[in-house]
């Protein structure tokens, strides 16, 4: 969503995703497309990500696996062998990590999308720009501090982590829902209303389907934020792969550090790719 659509400009938003892909221009179908130079069209068509990403991720995983094997844990010192035990440490941590990310992402979707819809309806519409502006500066909010503050209020554990993460990752989905709905061509809504669709029909049959790509992009950002934030869950006893990184830092064992960090990176990249797949296949046809 890096392109400044009029709606985004109106909402004072300049959009962020962790996505290196090109923005999809939504040219109004009724008017002739403005003349676009050939190199730009070609650039839009280039999607390195979807097909090559799995290869890259697999290659990275292979590299980490090879490194892991070369450590020869059975014969290495306990500072390395213990934190890197697959069955008792790394695998359960990965599961924990994904559990945290999953629940917080689900909750974010459940909360942020209806909220975003409400904030684009006439009665609440005027608060939209303010909320988007706050959401934008909210990017400076340190996840670290947020987690600790929630720890002091809710105590240790998974629940605290999930609540903190939901608050932190709410903003991209909320913002993208609002921006996506706002970017739907006025004429399309006008045509729908003119044919006698009710407001609810216009929302569910036209606005939401057309906003799906933008909303999905927001959900993908939220998911990646959550996977990243889950790395900090260890700070408040929430577990996750951050534990291994922290142990590596504390024991000054680079091997532990690198393997922990690499697994986190592989998890994040894998889910980002899945997100990209979802964005490609859940996008309504014709858009």
């Amino acid at each position: 969503m890096s392109q400044l659509t009029p709606a985004q400009a109106r909402l004072g938003d300049h959009g962020t995703t962790t996505d290196g892909r090109e923005p999809e221009g939504s040219l109004p179908p009724d008017l002739e497309a403005p003349h676009e130079p050939g190199w730009l069209t070609r650039a839009r068509r280039k999607h390195l990500g979807l097909k090559t990403a799995p290869l890259g991720i697999l290659g990275l995983a292979g590299l980490v696996f090879w490194y892991y094997q070369s450590l020869n844990l059975a014969e290495s010192k306990v500072q390395i062998a213990s934190p890197l035990a697959w069955g008792t440490k790394l695998w359960p941590q990965t599961v924990e990590h994904l559990t945290i990310a999953f629940w917080s992402t689900v909750l974010v979707v459940v909360v942020a999308i209806p909220l975003g819809i409400a904030l684009t309806r006439p009665p609440l519409r005027r608060f939209g720009p303010t909320i988007v502006a706050v959401a934008n500066s909210g990017q400076a909010l340190p996840a670290y501090g947020l987690l600790i503050l929630f720890l002091s209020m809710l105590g240790q554990g998974l629940r605290t982590v999930v609540v903190a993460l939901v608050l932190y990752a709410l903003l991209p989905v909320l913002r993208n829902t609002m921006v996506g709905l706002d970017a739907v061509e006025r004429s399309v809504i006008e045509a729908g209303r003119g044919m006698g669709m009710t407001r609810w029909q216009v929302l569910t049959r036209i606005e939401l389907p057309l906003a799906v790509p933008v909303i999905l992009a927001g959900v993908r950002v939220a998911m990646i934020l959550n996977i990243g934030m889950a790395t900090l869950a260890y700070l408040i006893g929430g577990g996750g792969l951050g534990v291994t990184i922290a142990v590596g830092l504390k024991l000054q064992q680079d091997a532990v550090l690198v393997i922990g960090a690499s697994i986190v990176a592989i998890v994040a990249l894998t889910f980002d790719w899945l997100g990209a797949l979802a964005e490609t296949y859940l996008r309504p046809k014709g858009v």
């Binding site: 179908p29 009724d30 061509e185 004429s187 809504i189 006008e190 209303r193 003119g194 006698g196 009710t198």
Partner: peptide, 22 residues
């Protein structure tokens, strides 16, 4: 008004075709 509009054809300059529908 919704029922009224279903009885009346309405064409606008920007057309407003639904891009996600055939």
């Amino acid at each position: 008004p919704d029922h009224l509009r279903r009885r009346i054809g309405y064409v606008i300059q920007q057309i407003g075709l639904f891009p996600h529908q055939t």
